Amino acid sequence: MARNKNGILGGFSGKVGTVVGYNSYGVDWMRGLPERTAPATIAEMKNRAQFKLVQDTLNCCKELIKVGFNNYWTKTGGMRGAVSYNKMFAVKEEENGYTIDPEEFKFSGGSLPGLKDVKVALEGKDVLRFHWDMEIGPDASAQDQVMMLAIDLEGRKSCYVAYGGFRNSGTDVLRLSDDLAGKEVHVYMAVIARDRSRQSNSQYSGMVVAK
């Protein structure tokens, strides 16, 4: 960002894109930013690799991320918040690079109470059946809605529902797409408030192999 004291025809100070403006002895000058010639450091390469892994993984469910990370973790939340959170907590280093830890991965976060005693089972070849305790605790509503996610973290494919059944229904289903057939699918669940003001932390419910 640059500052312009003398209107559109005057000089400016600061950076605009690749141009830097400055004043020297009453004369306004502009110069281009120097090109970096030094190779990226090890820390920079690690940061880029981690960022790309998380970004590519989240892209397959980005519309759900916008709901689950609404106003959460960072000032703007959404995809930026989800990338920041998962890069910090879910990325694990292995001998040949980085991977996403399914138990640390999160698609939703917030202060709304989650669900208790969540169980998931595969019905037929392409339907996941979710069950949970219907108890309505403090600071929750029977009309809160569930969010469901099934994701292939390796292949970066997913199926999800952002606004599913009500908290007091105790069960709901998620139909899997054909591109998840035969894949190891990690399953998650969260809750969003009836007025959309907040949501719960997502809960990891294990892994199933889609048929």
Score class of each variant (00 low, 15 high):
23 N>Y: 13
27 V>P: 07
68 G>K: 04
152 D>Q: 05
73 W>Y: 15
148 M>A: 14
159 C>S: 10
73 W>F: 14
201 N>M: 12
66 K>I: 10
58 L>F: 00
94 E>G: 13
87 K>I: 03
150 A>R: 06
127 V>I: 15
158 S>I: 00
82 A>Q: 04
25 Y>K: 15
75 K>H: 12
10 G>W: 04
76 T>M: 08
174 L>D: 01
156 R>Y: 01
62 K>E: 14
186 H>P: 03
85 Y>E: 05
113 P>I: 07
181 A>S: 12
116 K>M: 11
154 E>G: 10
132 W>D: 07
72 Y>H: 10
156 R>T: 01
42 I>N: 14
43 A>L: 12
204 Y>C: 03
128 L>G: 06
112 L>M: 08
99 T>C: 01
3 R>Q: 10
207 M>N: 05
116 K>P: 05
138 P>W: 01
64 L>S: 06
30 M>R: 08
205 S>F: 05
49 A>E: 05
31 R>N: 03
87 K>L: 01
63 E>A: 02
203 Q>K: 08
18 T>R: 15
109 G>H: 01
183 K>W: 01
45 M>F: 06
126 D>H: 07
51 F>C: 08
160 Y>R: 00
110 G>A: 04
168 N>V: 09
145 Q>M: 09
86 N>L: 08
54 V>W: 00
140 A>W: 10
88 M>I: 15
59 N>Y: 01
158 S>V: 01
9 L>M: 08
65 I>Q: 00
2 A>K: 04
15 K>N: 13
103 E>Y: 11
47 N>Y: 11
211 K>G: 08
205 S>Q: 14
209 V>W: 08
62 K>C: 02
60 C>N: 05
133 D>T: 02
190 A>L: 02
64 L>K: 03
180 L>V: 07
113 P>F: 07
94 E>D: 10
57 T>Q: 05
133 D>C: 13
30 M>E: 03
162 A>R: 09
